[in-house]
Design a protein around this nucleic acid. Sequence first.
DNA 1: GCTGACGATATTGTTGACAATTTCGTCGAT
DNA 2: ATCGACGAAATTGTCAACAATATCGTCAGC
Lengths: 228, 228
Amino acid sequence: MSPAPTPTLPGSPQRPPNGPEIADWVRQRIRTGRFVPGQRLVEVDIIRQTGASRSKVREALKRLEGEGLVQIEEFRGASVRSSTLDEVRQIYRARMALEGMAAHDFTLGASSALLDRLKALQDQLDASVRERAPDRFGRLNNEWHRLIVEGSGNRVIADHLQRLNVPIHRLLFESFYDEERLKTANADHQHMLGLILAGDAEGAERAMRRHIADGFETLARIESEFYS
Amino acid sequence: MSPAPTPTLPGSPQRPPNGPEIADWVRQRIRTGRFVPGQRLVEVDIIRQTGASRSKVREALKRLEGEGLVQIEEFRGASVRSSTLDEVRQIYRARMALEGMAAHDFTLGASSALLDRLKALQDQLDASVRERAPDRFGRLNNEWHRLIVEGSGNRVIADHLQRLNVPIHRLLFESFYDEERLKTANADHQHMLGLILAGDAEGAERAMRRHIADGFETLARIESEFYS
DNA sequence: GCTGACGATATTGTTGACAATTTCGTCGAT
DNA sequence: ATCGACGAAATTGTCAACAATATCGTCAGC
Protein backbone atom coordinates (compact mmCIF):
# COMPACT_ATOMS: atom_id res chain seq x y z
CA MET A 1 0.00 0.00 0.00
CA SER A 2 1.17 3.50 -0.79
CA PRO A 3 4.41 2.51 -2.48
CA ALA A 4 5.62 5.93 -3.56
CA PRO A 5 6.92 8.32 -0.92
CA THR A 6 6.78 11.09 -3.46
CA PRO A 7 8.72 14.31 -3.13
CA THR A 8 7.13 17.66 -2.53
CA LEU A 9 6.11 19.68 -5.49
CA PRO A 10 6.38 23.42 -5.73
CA GLY A 11 3.19 25.22 -6.65
CA SER A 12 1.86 28.54 -7.72
CA PRO A 13 -0.31 30.68 -5.46
CA GLN A 14 -3.94 30.13 -6.31
CA ARG A 15 -6.30 30.95 -3.42
CA PRO A 16 -5.87 34.72 -3.30
CA PRO A 17 -7.17 36.34 -0.12
CA ASN A 18 -9.36 34.31 2.19
CA GLY A 19 -8.82 30.74 3.33
CA PRO A 20 -11.99 29.11 4.64
CA GLU A 21 -10.02 26.49 6.47
CA ILE A 22 -6.59 25.16 5.72
CA ALA A 23 -7.32 21.83 7.37
CA ASP A 24 -10.26 21.26 5.03
CA TRP A 25 -8.14 22.20 2.07
CA VAL A 26 -5.46 19.67 2.95
CA ARG A 27 -7.96 17.02 3.92
CA GLN A 28 -9.72 17.15 0.64
CA ARG A 29 -6.47 16.94 -1.26
CA ILE A 30 -5.60 13.84 0.70
CA ARG A 31 -9.00 12.32 0.03
CA THR A 32 -8.87 12.95 -3.66
CA GLY A 33 -5.38 11.62 -3.96
CA ARG A 34 -3.68 14.88 -4.88
CA PHE A 35 -1.61 14.35 -1.76
CA VAL A 36 -0.58 10.72 -1.70
CA PRO A 37 0.38 8.67 1.36
CA GLY A 38 3.95 9.27 2.41
CA GLN A 39 4.12 12.62 0.68
CA ARG A 40 5.69 15.35 2.74
CA LEU A 41 3.57 18.38 3.46
CA VAL A 42 6.03 21.22 3.47
CA GLU A 43 4.69 24.27 5.23
CA VAL A 44 6.02 26.76 2.71
CA ASP A 45 4.39 24.91 -0.17
CA ILE A 46 1.00 24.99 1.49
CA ILE A 47 1.51 28.64 2.25
CA ARG A 48 2.30 29.34 -1.38
CA GLN A 49 -0.71 27.39 -2.55
CA THR A 50 -3.22 28.75 -0.08
CA GLY A 51 -1.93 32.16 0.86
CA ALA A 52 -2.33 31.35 4.53
CA SER A 53 0.16 32.33 7.17
CA ARG A 54 2.62 29.99 8.78
CA SER A 55 0.91 29.60 12.12
CA LYS A 56 -2.37 28.84 10.40
CA VAL A 57 -0.75 26.09 8.40
CA ARG A 58 1.02 24.69 11.41
CA GLU A 59 -2.14 24.57 13.49
CA ALA A 60 -4.05 22.97 10.63
CA LEU A 61 -1.42 20.26 10.33
CA LYS A 62 -1.54 19.67 14.08
CA ARG A 63 -5.27 19.30 13.83
CA LEU A 64 -4.96 16.80 11.03
CA GLU A 65 -2.47 14.91 13.13
CA GLY A 66 -5.15 14.72 15.79
CA GLU A 67 -7.50 13.31 13.20
CA GLY A 68 -4.92 10.66 12.40
CA LEU A 69 -4.56 11.78 8.81
CA VAL A 70 -1.13 13.24 9.04
CA GLN A 71 2.08 12.27 10.74
CA ILE A 72 4.39 14.85 12.27
CA GLU A 73 8.00 14.16 13.20
CA GLU A 74 10.22 16.53 15.11
CA PHE A 75 12.17 18.76 12.76
CA ARG A 76 11.03 16.63 9.85
CA GLY A 77 7.61 18.05 9.42
CA ALA A 78 4.29 16.61 8.36
CA SER A 79 3.53 13.90 5.86
CA VAL A 80 0.42 12.08 4.78
CA ARG A 81 0.11 8.98 6.90
CA SER A 82 0.41 5.87 4.84
CA SER A 83 -1.28 2.59 5.55
CA THR A 84 0.05 -0.89 5.19
CA LEU A 85 -2.21 -3.53 3.69
CA ASP A 86 -2.66 -4.95 7.18
CA GLU A 87 -3.85 -1.60 8.46
CA VAL A 88 -6.33 -1.42 5.62
CA ARG A 89 -7.55 -4.83 6.74
CA GLN A 90 -8.03 -3.45 10.24
CA ILE A 91 -9.88 -0.45 8.86
CA TYR A 92 -12.24 -2.73 6.99
CA ARG A 93 -12.79 -4.73 10.14
CA ALA A 94 -13.74 -1.56 11.98
CA ARG A 95 -16.01 -0.55 9.10
CA MET A 96 -17.75 -3.92 9.31
CA ALA A 97 -18.46 -3.33 12.98
CA LEU A 98 -19.61 0.27 12.69
CA GLU A 99 -21.46 0.17 9.40
CA GLY A 100 -23.07 -3.09 10.43
CA MET A 101 -24.37 -1.38 13.53
CA ALA A 102 -25.48 1.59 11.45
CA ALA A 103 -27.42 -0.68 9.09
CA HIS A 104 -29.05 -2.30 12.10
CA ASP A 105 -30.14 0.99 13.61
CA PHE A 106 -31.15 2.43 10.25
CA THR A 107 -33.51 -0.48 9.71
CA LEU A 108 -35.19 0.10 13.04
CA GLY A 109 -35.39 3.85 12.93
CA ALA A 110 -35.41 5.18 9.40
CA SER A 111 -38.21 7.49 8.36
CA SER A 112 -40.18 6.77 5.21
CA ALA A 113 -38.55 9.78 3.59
CA LEU A 114 -35.13 8.21 4.10
CA LEU A 115 -36.39 4.89 2.79
CA ASP A 116 -37.62 6.65 -0.33
CA ARG A 117 -34.26 8.28 -0.87
CA LEU A 118 -32.58 4.92 -0.46
CA LYS A 119 -34.89 3.32 -3.01
CA ALA A 120 -34.27 6.17 -5.45
CA LEU A 121 -30.54 5.77 -4.98
CA GLN A 122 -30.85 2.06 -5.63
CA ASP A 123 -32.58 2.78 -8.94
CA GLN A 124 -29.71 5.02 -9.96
CA LEU A 125 -27.21 2.35 -8.94
CA ASP A 126 -29.04 -0.22 -11.04
CA ALA A 127 -28.93 2.14 -14.00
CA SER A 128 -25.20 2.74 -13.61
CA VAL A 129 -24.65 -1.02 -13.59
CA ARG A 130 -26.72 -1.51 -16.74
CA GLU A 131 -24.82 1.28 -18.44
CA ARG A 132 -21.48 -0.08 -17.25
CA ALA A 133 -20.44 3.19 -15.59
CA PRO A 134 -18.09 2.14 -12.80
CA ASP A 135 -17.11 5.68 -11.98
CA ARG A 136 -20.65 6.82 -11.44
CA PHE A 137 -21.36 3.62 -9.57
CA GLY A 138 -18.50 4.46 -7.22
CA ARG A 139 -19.93 7.88 -6.44
CA LEU A 140 -23.45 6.55 -5.95
CA ASN A 141 -22.09 3.71 -3.87
CA ASN A 142 -20.50 6.24 -1.55
CA GLU A 143 -23.75 8.12 -1.28
CA TRP A 144 -25.59 4.92 -0.56
CA HIS A 145 -23.31 4.00 2.32
CA ARG A 146 -23.37 7.52 3.67
CA LEU A 147 -27.14 7.61 3.57
CA ILE A 148 -27.33 4.49 5.70
CA VAL A 149 -24.79 5.81 8.16
CA GLU A 150 -26.17 9.32 8.48
CA GLY A 151 -29.69 7.97 8.58
CA SER A 152 -28.90 5.67 11.47
CA GLY A 153 -29.19 8.63 13.81
CA ASN A 154 -25.76 8.03 15.32
CA ARG A 155 -23.49 10.99 14.73
CA VAL A 156 -20.65 9.44 16.70
CA ILE A 157 -20.53 6.41 14.46
CA ALA A 158 -20.86 8.64 11.41
CA ASP A 159 -17.89 10.76 12.46
CA HIS A 160 -15.65 7.81 13.20
CA LEU A 161 -16.55 6.17 9.92
CA GLN A 162 -15.73 9.30 8.02
CA ARG A 163 -12.28 9.35 9.59
CA LEU A 164 -11.86 5.68 8.96
CA ASN A 165 -12.64 6.09 5.30
CA VAL A 166 -10.20 8.83 4.40
CA PRO A 167 -7.13 6.60 4.00
CA ILE A 168 -9.02 4.18 1.77
CA HIS A 169 -11.07 6.74 -0.13
CA ARG A 170 -9.34 6.20 -3.41
CA LEU A 171 -9.34 2.45 -3.05
CA LEU A 172 -13.11 2.45 -2.70
CA PHE A 173 -13.46 3.31 -6.35
CA GLU A 174 -10.91 1.01 -7.88
CA SER A 175 -12.70 -2.23 -7.21
CA PHE A 176 -15.62 -1.36 -9.44
CA TYR A 177 -13.66 -1.41 -12.64
CA ASP A 178 -14.03 -5.17 -12.35
CA GLU A 179 -17.44 -5.76 -13.86
CA GLU A 180 -18.00 -8.91 -11.86
CA ARG A 181 -17.39 -7.11 -8.60
CA LEU A 182 -19.66 -4.29 -9.63
CA LYS A 183 -22.55 -6.67 -10.25
CA THR A 184 -21.99 -8.55 -7.02
CA ALA A 185 -21.84 -5.35 -5.02
CA ASN A 186 -25.05 -4.10 -6.53
CA ALA A 187 -26.77 -7.38 -5.81
CA ASP A 188 -25.65 -6.96 -2.20
CA HIS A 189 -27.26 -3.55 -2.13
CA GLN A 190 -30.51 -4.82 -3.53
CA HIS A 191 -30.54 -7.63 -1.02
CA MET A 192 -29.87 -5.24 1.86
CA LEU A 193 -32.60 -2.90 0.69
CA GLY A 194 -35.02 -5.81 0.85
CA LEU A 195 -33.97 -6.68 4.38
CA ILE A 196 -34.23 -3.05 5.48
CA LEU A 197 -37.71 -2.65 4.02
CA ALA A 198 -38.73 -5.89 5.70
CA GLY A 199 -37.50 -4.53 9.03
CA ASP A 200 -34.96 -7.32 9.47
CA ALA A 201 -32.35 -5.31 11.38
CA GLU A 202 -30.08 -8.20 12.27
CA GLY A 203 -30.24 -9.56 8.76
CA ALA A 204 -29.32 -6.15 7.38
CA GLU A 205 -26.40 -5.95 9.79
CA ARG A 206 -25.07 -9.36 8.77
CA ALA A 207 -25.49 -8.51 5.10
CA MET A 208 -23.67 -5.21 5.51
CA ARG A 209 -20.79 -6.95 7.23
CA ARG A 210 -20.47 -9.56 4.53
CA HIS A 211 -20.72 -6.87 1.86
CA ILE A 212 -17.82 -4.93 3.38
CA ALA A 213 -15.77 -8.07 3.96
CA ASP A 214 -16.23 -8.97 0.29
CA GLY A 215 -15.13 -5.49 -0.64
CA PHE A 216 -11.89 -6.00 1.21
CA GLU A 217 -11.32 -9.39 -0.37
CA THR A 218 -11.57 -7.86 -3.82
CA LEU A 219 -9.32 -5.02 -2.82
CA ALA A 220 -6.68 -7.31 -1.38
CA ARG A 221 -6.73 -9.36 -4.57
CA ILE A 222 -6.21 -6.27 -6.69
CA GLU A 223 -3.42 -4.98 -4.48
CA SER A 224 -1.58 -8.30 -4.33
CA GLU A 225 -1.70 -8.52 -8.14
CA PHE A 226 -0.36 -5.01 -8.28
CA TYR A 227 2.65 -6.07 -6.26
CA SER A 228 3.41 -9.40 -7.95
CA MET B 1 -24.57 15.07 31.54
CA SER B 2 -21.75 17.46 32.40
CA PRO B 3 -23.85 19.82 34.48
CA ALA B 4 -21.21 22.23 35.67
CA PRO B 5 -19.54 24.59 33.19
CA THR B 6 -17.00 25.55 35.77
CA PRO B 7 -14.83 28.62 35.52
CA THR B 8 -11.13 28.57 34.88
CA LEU B 9 -8.84 28.46 37.84
CA PRO B 10 -5.57 30.26 38.14
CA GLY B 11 -2.62 28.05 38.96
CA SER B 12 0.98 28.16 39.97
CA PRO B 13 3.76 27.08 37.61
CA GLN B 14 4.66 23.49 38.35
CA ARG B 15 6.33 21.74 35.43
CA PRO B 16 9.66 23.60 35.42
CA PRO B 17 11.67 23.12 32.24
CA ASN B 18 10.62 20.39 29.84
CA GLY B 19 7.11 19.60 28.64
CA PRO B 20 6.82 16.08 27.26
CA GLU B 21 3.65 16.95 25.42
CA ILE B 22 1.04 19.53 26.23
CA ALA B 23 -1.69 17.60 24.45
CA ASP B 24 -1.06 14.60 26.69
CA TRP B 25 -1.11 16.80 29.76
CA VAL B 26 -4.49 18.27 28.87
CA ARG B 27 -5.89 14.95 27.72
CA GLN B 28 -5.10 13.26 30.97
CA ARG B 29 -6.66 16.08 32.97
CA ILE B 30 -9.80 15.70 30.94
CA ARG B 31 -9.84 11.95 31.46
CA THR B 32 -9.36 12.20 35.19
CA GLY B 33 -12.00 14.85 35.53
CA ARG B 34 -9.70 17.66 36.60
CA PHE B 35 -10.97 19.47 33.51
CA VAL B 36 -14.70 18.91 33.36
CA PRO B 37 -16.92 19.13 30.28
CA GLY B 38 -17.80 22.68 29.36
CA GLN B 39 -14.81 24.11 31.18
CA ARG B 40 -12.93 26.74 29.27
CA LEU B 41 -9.29 26.04 28.57
CA VAL B 42 -7.65 29.44 28.74
CA GLU B 43 -4.30 29.50 27.01
CA VAL B 44 -2.59 31.60 29.65
CA ASP B 45 -3.68 29.26 32.44
CA ILE B 46 -2.24 26.25 30.66
CA ILE B 47 0.94 28.21 30.02
CA ARG B 48 1.20 29.08 33.70
CA GLN B 49 0.59 25.50 34.75
CA THR B 50 2.87 23.83 32.24
CA GLY B 51 5.50 26.41 31.42
CA ALA B 52 4.97 25.82 27.73
CA SER B 53 4.95 28.57 25.17
CA ARG B 54 1.85 29.98 23.59
CA SER B 55 2.21 28.40 20.18
CA LYS B 56 2.78 25.03 21.78
CA VAL B 57 -0.42 25.36 23.75
CA ARG B 58 -2.37 26.57 20.77
CA GLU B 59 -1.14 23.72 18.60
CA ALA B 60 -1.90 21.21 21.32
CA LEU B 61 -5.44 22.52 21.62
CA LYS B 62 -5.84 22.33 17.85
CA ARG B 63 -4.68 18.77 17.99
CA LEU B 64 -7.17 17.92 20.69
CA GLU B 65 -9.86 19.54 18.60
CA GLY B 66 -8.89 17.12 15.86
CA GLU B 67 -9.28 14.30 18.33
CA GLY B 68 -12.75 15.54 19.12
CA LEU B 69 -11.97 16.16 22.77
CA VAL B 70 -12.00 19.90 22.71
CA GLN B 71 -14.15 22.50 21.05
CA ILE B 72 -12.69 25.72 19.69
CA GLU B 73 -14.77 28.77 18.88
CA GLU B 74 -13.47 31.85 17.09
CA PHE B 75 -12.29 34.42 19.60
CA ARG B 76 -13.83 32.41 22.40
CA GLY B 77 -11.12 29.85 22.76
CA ALA B 78 -11.12 26.17 23.64
CA SER B 79 -13.34 24.30 26.03
CA VAL B 80 -13.77 20.67 26.97
CA ARG B 81 -16.43 19.20 24.74
CA SER B 82 -19.45 18.12 26.70
CA SER B 83 -21.71 15.26 25.80
CA THR B 84 -25.44 15.02 26.06
CA LEU B 85 -26.96 11.81 27.37
CA ASP B 86 -27.98 10.97 23.83
CA GLU B 87 -24.41 11.32 22.64
CA VAL B 88 -23.30 9.00 25.42
CA ARG B 89 -25.85 6.54 24.15
CA GLN B 90 -24.33 6.81 20.69
CA ILE B 91 -20.88 6.28 22.13
CA TYR B 92 -22.03 3.13 23.85
CA ARG B 93 -23.56 1.93 20.60
CA ALA B 94 -20.21 2.44 18.86
CA ARG B 95 -18.46 0.68 21.73
CA MET B 96 -20.79 -2.28 21.33
CA ALA B 97 -19.88 -2.54 17.67
CA LEU B 98 -16.13 -2.13 18.08
CA GLU B 99 -15.53 -3.99 21.31
CA GLY B 100 -17.83 -6.74 20.12
CA MET B 101 -15.65 -7.09 17.04
CA ALA B 102 -12.55 -7.00 19.23
CA ALA B 103 -13.87 -9.79 21.43
CA HIS B 104 -14.60 -11.81 18.32
CA ASP B 105 -11.11 -11.39 16.92
CA PHE B 106 -9.48 -11.86 20.30
CA THR B 107 -11.19 -15.21 20.66
CA LEU B 108 -9.88 -16.38 17.32
CA GLY B 109 -6.37 -15.04 17.57
CA ALA B 110 -5.25 -14.66 21.15
CA SER B 111 -2.01 -16.29 22.21
CA SER B 112 -1.94 -18.50 25.26
CA ALA B 113 0.09 -15.84 27.06
CA LEU B 114 -2.73 -13.35 26.57
CA LEU B 115 -5.28 -15.90 27.72
CA ASP B 116 -3.23 -16.45 30.87
CA ARG B 117 -3.16 -12.73 31.56
CA LEU B 118 -6.89 -12.56 31.08
CA LYS B 119 -7.46 -15.43 33.49
CA ALA B 120 -5.20 -13.80 36.06
CA LEU B 121 -7.08 -10.53 35.67
CA GLN B 122 -10.35 -12.36 36.17
CA ASP B 123 -9.06 -13.77 39.45
CA GLN B 124 -8.24 -10.27 40.63
CA LEU B 125 -11.66 -9.05 39.57
CA ASP B 126 -13.30 -11.87 41.53
CA ALA B 127 -11.28 -10.92 44.57
CA SER B 128 -12.26 -7.26 44.31
CA VAL B 129 -15.90 -8.30 44.15
CA ARG B 130 -15.57 -10.51 47.22
CA GLU B 131 -13.87 -7.69 49.07
CA ARG B 132 -16.44 -5.15 47.90
CA ALA B 133 -13.84 -2.81 46.44
CA PRO B 134 -15.69 -0.99 43.66
CA ASP B 135 -12.86 1.42 43.00
CA ARG B 136 -10.35 -1.35 42.43
CA PHE B 137 -12.93 -3.22 40.40
CA GLY B 138 -13.28 -0.17 38.17
CA ARG B 139 -9.56 -0.06 37.49
CA LEU B 140 -9.29 -3.78 36.86
CA ASN B 141 -12.38 -3.64 34.69
CA ASN B 142 -10.68 -1.05 32.51
CA GLU B 143 -7.62 -3.23 32.24
CA TRP B 144 -9.76 -6.21 31.34
CA HIS B 145 -11.47 -4.39 28.49
CA ARG B 146 -8.22 -2.95 27.28
CA LEU B 147 -6.56 -6.35 27.28
CA ILE B 148 -9.29 -7.73 25.04
CA VAL B 149 -9.07 -4.76 22.69
CA GLU B 150 -5.30 -4.57 22.46
CA GLY B 151 -5.09 -8.35 22.24
CA SER B 152 -7.43 -8.43 19.28
CA GLY B 153 -4.54 -7.38 17.05
CA ASN B 154 -6.46 -4.46 15.61
CA ARG B 155 -4.73 -1.20 16.37
CA VAL B 156 -7.24 0.83 14.41
CA ILE B 157 -10.12 -0.38 16.54
CA ALA B 158 -8.04 0.10 19.67
CA ASP B 159 -7.29 3.72 18.76
CA HIS B 160 -10.87 4.58 17.97
CA LEU B 161 -12.08 2.96 21.17
CA GLN B 162 -9.61 4.92 23.21
CA ARG B 163 -10.94 8.15 21.74
CA LEU B 164 -14.49 6.99 22.22
CA ASN B 165 -13.87 6.31 25.88
CA VAL B 166 -12.40 9.63 26.96
CA PRO B 167 -15.69 11.50 27.33
CA ILE B 168 -17.17 8.69 29.43
CA HIS B 169 -14.05 7.79 31.37
CA ARG B 170 -15.34 9.02 34.69
CA LEU B 171 -18.75 7.50 34.17
CA LEU B 172 -17.21 4.09 33.71
CA PHE B 173 -16.36 3.97 37.39
CA GLU B 174 -19.55 5.30 38.88
CA SER B 175 -21.76 2.36 38.04
CA PHE B 176 -19.83 -0.04 40.21
CA TYR B 177 -20.76 1.60 43.46
CA ASP B 178 -24.01 -0.27 43.00
CA GLU B 179 -23.19 -3.69 44.41
CA GLU B 180 -25.78 -5.42 42.26
CA ARG B 181 -24.32 -3.97 39.09
CA LEU B 182 -20.83 -4.94 40.17
CA LYS B 183 -21.82 -8.57 40.65
CA THR B 184 -23.70 -8.68 37.36
CA ALA B 185 -20.78 -7.17 35.48
CA ASN B 186 -18.35 -9.64 36.95
CA ALA B 187 -20.64 -12.53 36.06
CA ASP B 188 -20.62 -11.19 32.50
CA HIS B 189 -16.84 -11.25 32.52
CA GLN B 190 -16.70 -14.80 33.79
CA HIS B 191 -19.18 -15.88 31.17
CA MET B 192 -17.20 -14.18 28.42
CA LEU B 193 -13.98 -15.75 29.60
CA GLY B 194 -15.63 -19.14 29.27
CA LEU B 195 -16.77 -18.41 25.73
CA ILE B 196 -13.35 -17.11 24.77
CA LEU B 197 -11.57 -20.17 26.13
CA ALA B 198 -14.07 -22.36 24.31
CA GLY B 199 -13.24 -20.56 21.08
CA ASP B 200 -16.81 -19.36 20.57
CA ALA B 201 -16.00 -16.09 18.83
CA GLU B 202 -19.54 -15.16 17.88
CA GLY B 203 -20.80 -16.00 21.34
CA ALA B 204 -18.12 -13.81 22.86
CA GLU B 205 -19.08 -10.99 20.55
CA ARG B 206 -22.75 -11.21 21.45
CA ALA B 207 -21.90 -11.39 25.15
CA MET B 208 -19.65 -8.35 24.92
CA ARG B 209 -22.36 -6.37 23.21
CA ARG B 210 -24.94 -7.28 25.82
CA HIS B 211 -22.47 -6.49 28.58
CA ILE B 212 -21.85 -3.01 27.22
CA ALA B 213 -25.54 -2.40 26.56
CA ASP B 214 -26.27 -3.33 30.19
CA GLY B 215 -23.56 -0.94 31.28
CA PHE B 216 -25.32 1.88 29.49
CA GLU B 217 -28.66 0.94 30.96
CA THR B 218 -27.26 1.19 34.46
CA LEU B 219 -25.58 4.46 33.64
CA ALA B 220 -28.71 5.98 32.16
CA ARG B 221 -30.65 4.97 35.26
CA ILE B 222 -28.08 6.65 37.50
CA GLU B 223 -28.00 9.79 35.41
CA SER B 224 -31.75 10.12 35.18
CA GLU B 225 -32.02 9.77 38.95
CA PHE B 226 -29.41 12.46 39.24
CA TYR B 227 -31.57 14.81 37.24
CA SER B 228 -34.94 14.02 38.79
C1' DG C 1 34.86 5.26 -7.87
C1' DC C 2 33.69 5.34 -2.96
C1' DT C 3 33.52 7.34 1.67
C1' DG C 4 33.16 10.69 4.96
C1' DA C 5 33.74 15.48 6.52
C1' DC C 6 32.21 20.08 5.67
C1' DG C 7 29.35 23.93 4.54
C1' DA C 8 25.29 26.10 2.16
C1' DT C 9 20.49 25.73 1.78
C1' DA C 10 16.00 24.33 3.10
C1' DT C 11 12.81 23.34 6.57
C1' DT C 12 10.96 23.30 10.98
C1' DG C 13 10.80 25.10 15.96
C1' DT C 14 10.29 29.05 19.08
C1' DT C 15 9.53 33.47 20.70
C1' DG C 16 7.66 37.91 21.15
C1' DA C 17 5.01 41.80 19.75
C1' DC C 18 0.84 43.69 17.93
C1' DA C 19 -4.20 43.56 16.25
C1' DA C 20 -9.00 41.99 16.77
C1' DT C 21 -12.56 40.50 19.60
C1' DT C 22 -14.91 39.38 23.61
C1' DT C 23 -15.82 40.03 28.51
C1' DC C 24 -16.79 42.53 32.42
C1' DG C 25 -17.22 46.33 35.45
C1' DT C 26 -18.76 51.28 35.76
C1' DC C 27 -21.77 54.84 35.42
C1' DG C 28 -25.58 57.64 34.06
C1' DA C 29 -30.52 57.93 32.56
C1' DT C 30 -35.05 56.53 33.30
C1' DA D 1 -33.43 49.17 40.92
C1' DT D 2 -33.02 48.17 35.74
C1' DC D 3 -31.25 48.94 31.47
C1' DG D 4 -27.98 50.26 28.16
C1' DA D 5 -23.78 52.80 26.60
C1' DC D 6 -19.08 53.15 27.31
C1' DG D 7 -14.39 51.83 28.17
C1' DA D 8 -10.75 49.05 30.42
C1' DA D 9 -9.08 44.49 30.91
C1' DA D 10 -8.72 39.90 29.43
C1' DT D 11 -8.40 36.69 25.83
C1' DT D 12 -7.65 35.07 21.37
C1' DG D 13 -5.96 35.76 16.41
C1' DT D 14 -2.14 37.01 13.38
C1' DC D 15 2.27 37.91 11.86
C1' DA D 16 7.22 38.38 11.29
C1' DA D 17 11.77 37.63 12.82
C1' DC D 18 15.19 34.58 14.70
C1' DA D 19 17.08 29.90 16.37
C1' DA D 20 17.67 24.93 15.80
C1' DT D 21 17.80 21.07 13.00
C1' DA D 22 17.84 18.43 8.92
C1' DT D 23 18.90 17.91 4.01
C1' DC D 24 21.78 17.97 0.19
C1' DG D 25 25.60 19.03 -2.74
C1' DT D 26 30.73 19.43 -2.84
C1' DC D 27 35.12 18.04 -2.37
C1' DA D 28 39.33 16.09 -0.36
C1' DG D 29 41.39 11.71 0.69
C1' DC D 30 42.02 7.00 -0.12
